[in-house]
Structure formats: C-alpha cells, structure tokens
C-alpha cells in the first residue's frame, strides 16, 4: 500500500493525497500527520484533496477529525482543492465540515497562513507589507 508523503515547508506541513485511500490507509495517514506535527512543532497542515474524485463520509470524517486533533496540538488544518462535484456531494450527504478551514488551492492556503501570522505577530510583518505597498504606489505614480 502506498504511503502518502508529508512534506515540511517551514512550520507548515503539506500533504497532497494523490491516490484513493482505503479506510486503513486513511487512518494511518491521520496518525502520520499528527506525529509529524509533534515532531516538527508544526503550526499548520495543508491537505490537498484535488486529486480525489470523491470524498465519502469516511474520508470526510477522517479529515474533520484530523483538523480537530491537530487543533488540540495547536496546529491548524487547511483543506484545499475541493472540487464543485465533491462540495455538492458532501453537503447532500449531510457531512458537516463546518469547523475545517478551506482554501481554493495551495497558493491561497499559504497566503492565508501568512496573513494569520501577520495579524498574530503584528507590527514586523505588517511594516514590511506596508513598505511594499509604498514601493508599489511609488511605481504607480
């Protein structure tokens, strides 16, 4: 059985689910993610499900549970790549993933994390963003 790789990028873990997961593989992935969060002191986990043709109640529950468990370890989970068909099916199935943060794609998820960090640490990040904004407005004029 193939193992889903978990990539480390700074304090973020990136998990791209590329193959359909058997139930056992899904449970193992959940444990792997939590172990890596602890090992790397990760602040965030981005899970990309864009390759999945369907998300059924089992995988849906695994994903929302993983988000809850990671939150207990002070890491936030962002789910990316939910297609229109998967989104419609999840709602009709009656699965509530309300507590899980989502982003359209990996890039937006990384931006979301940057913004969260900026509002958490305050001045430093925001100052550098303001500097950039200055430069852009100078260029424009």
């Amino acid at each position: 059985m193939e193992k889903t790789p978990i990539l480390k990028f700074g304090d973020t873990l990136i998990v791209s689910i590329q193959t359909e997961l058997h139930d056992k593989a899904a449970s193992r992935l959940q444990e792997d993610i939590l172990n890596q969060v602890q090992k790397n002191n990760s602040q965030a986990v981005v899970i990309d499900v864009s390759s999945l043709e369907i998300v059924d109640s089992f995988i849906g529950r695994m994903l929302s549970n993983t988000a809850e468990m990671a939150a207990l370890m002070h890491a936030s989970v962002i789910l990316v790549g939910i297609s229109p068909a998967v989104s419609i099916t999840l709602v009709e199935l009656g699965l509530n993933l309300g507590g899980v943060k989502t982003a359209l794609d990996l890039e937006s998820a990384m931006e979301l994390l940057q913004n969260d960090k900026a509002s958490f640490f305050g001045s430093e990040k925001l100052d550098s963003q303001a500097d950039n904004a200055d430069e852009i407005s100078k260029d424009a004029s």
Partner: peptide, 17 residues
Amino acid sequence: GLIDQTRLTTITSELVR
C-alpha cells in the same frame, strides 16, 4: 455528467462499505 458521476460513486462507496 461529472456531478452525477460523483454522486453515484459516493453512494457506491457508502453502501458497499
């Protein structure tokens, strides 16, 4: 269509499980 394919595949996943 893609959405009905996804619905039927998901039903199959639930009921076969």
